[in-house]
C-alpha cells in the first residue's frame, strides 16, 4: 500500500513531517480535581485526576511519597467496529502502566506523603496515537489539579513507511504494521521518559525517526503551555483581589 504519494502527501493529505491539529480543553469534569480533553486530529481522549486524597487501600500507603494510580480505558464507541472489550485486558493494563510510570517521573510525589493520586483516562475516539494523546491529556489534567510537577510531559509518535519518516501516525498508518515509535519527553529538562517501539528499525533510521518524534513532542509542549497559561490567567483575572 502506498502511504506517501509521489507528490509527498500522506493518506489524509498531510506532509510527512506534519502533525494533526491539536485541541485541548481544561476543566471538563466538574467534580474532578483536574480534568482535560485532548484531541490530536480525530483521536480524542478525556482525562480526570482525583487527589491527592486519602489512600483507599491502607496497605499501599507510604509515609514518604504519594501513590500514583492510573486507569486507562477505551470507550466501546471509540473504534470503527464496535467491540465489547473486557475491562482490564492486556492492552489496557499495559497502557495504564505506561502512563502511570511516565506521569510518576514528573510528579513530585515526596511532597504529598500518605496520599494517592488517581488518573483516569478514557479514549473517546481512536484514530492512532492514543497512547500519546492519553499522556498529553493526563499532563494537562494533573497541572489543572494543582499537583506539583518538575515539568510537563508531552508525547508524540512517529513511524517509518515507504522509506519516509512520518510524524504522528493515524490509524491507517498505524495498522500498516510498520515501526511505530512513541516518545515521551520532559521538554524543559530535555529528557526522555518514555520510548516504545513496535517492529524493527535500522539504527540510522531510528535516530531520525526518534528525532522527528521529539520535535513533535516539543510542538505539543508549546501548545499545552499556551493552553495552561491562558487558563491560569483566566482563573486569576476572574478571582480578582
Amino acid at each position: 500500500m502506498e502511504f506517501v504519494n509521489p507528490e509527498g502527501l500522506r493518506l489524509d493529505g498531510r506532509r510527512p513531517m506534519e502533525m494533526r491539529q491539536l485541541r485541548a480543553e481544561i476543566g471538563v469534569v466538574s467534580k474532578a480535581d483536574g480534568s482535560a480533553v485532548f484531541e490530536m486530529g480525530n483521536t480524542k481522549v478525556i482525562a480526570a485526576v482525583y487527589g491527592p486524597r486519602e489512600v483507599q487501600n491502607r496497605s499501599q500507603q507510604s509515609n514518604d511519597q504519594a501513590l500514583v494510580r492510573c486507569e486507562y480505558s477505551m470507550a466501546n464507541f471509540s473504534t470503527g467496529d464496535r467491540m465489547r472489550k473486557p475491562k482490564g485486558d492486556r492492552r489496557s493494563t499495559e497502557i495504564s502502566m505506561v502512563i502511570r510510570q511516565t506521569m510518576e517521573a514528573c510528579i513530585l510525589t515526596h511532597l504529598m506523603p500518605r496520599s494517592q493520586i488517581d488518573i483516569f483516562v478514557q479514549v473517546l475516539q481512536a484514530d492512532g496515537g492514543t497512547r500519546s494523546a492519553c499522556i498529553n491529556a493526563a499532563t494537562l489534567a494533573l497541572a489543572d489539579a494543582g499537583i506539583p510537577m518538575t515539568d510537563i510531559v508531552t508525547s508524540c509518535s512517529a513511524g517509518f513507511l515507504n522509506g519516509t519518516p512520518l510524524l504522528d501516525l493515524n490509524y491507517v498508518e498505524d495498522s500498516a504494521g510498520g515501526p511505530d515509535v512513541t516518545v515521551g519527553i520532559l521538554p524543559k529538562l530535555d529528557k526522555v521518559t518514555l520510548l516504545q517501539m513496535d517492529s524493527k528499525l535500522q539504527m540510522e533510521t531510528f535516530e531520525t525517526v526518534m528525532q522527528l518524534a521529539t520535535e513533535g513532542c516539543k510542538a505539543v509542549a508549546s501548545y499545552i503551555r499556551e493552553v495552561l497559561l491562558e487558563n491560569t490567567k483566566q482563573l486569576e483575572s476572574r478571582r480578582g483581589v
Binding site: 497541572a143 510537577m149 515539568d151 510537563i152 524543559k188 497559561l229 490567567k233 483581589v241
Partner: peptide, 10 residues
C-alpha cells in the same frame, strides 16, 4: 494590577 505574574509548570 499584576502584569505577567502568572506562571505555569516549569
Amino acid at each position: 494590577a499584576n502584569s505577567d505574574a502568572s506562571v505555569i509548570v516549569a
